[in-house]
Amino acid sequence: MKILEAASQKKLQRLRDAQARQGSSDTTDTKIIEEIESLLHKATLHQTSISDKALVEAHGKLHCKSTPPIAP
């Protein structure tokens, strides 16, 4: 099973590298996150429907930047 082990090592190293890159230059748009937080505050205060249009749109902006956590 040496190939499984080698692939596992490579995968873990990539994960670490990705984390290091993430720490030094975070590509997630913090303004969008702040906007979402603000919208969630309002939505909680007013107990609005969770399909609030602005919230949906703000998350939509993040959609193209993030790969799905699982894919065929």
């Binding site: 609005t48 969770i50 993030s66």
Partner: peptide, 28 residues
């Protein structure tokens, strides 16, 4: 939510017949 990193807590509103925000936490 894996995009924004928030966890939303939702509750049932029987008048709206909808889920509405109850609280949230986290964030990316």
């Amino acid at each position: 939510n894996y995009l924004s990193g928030f966890v939303s807590i939702l509750q049932y509103n029987p008048y709206l017949d909808d889920l509405v925000h109850f609280s949230f936490f986290g964030g990316y």
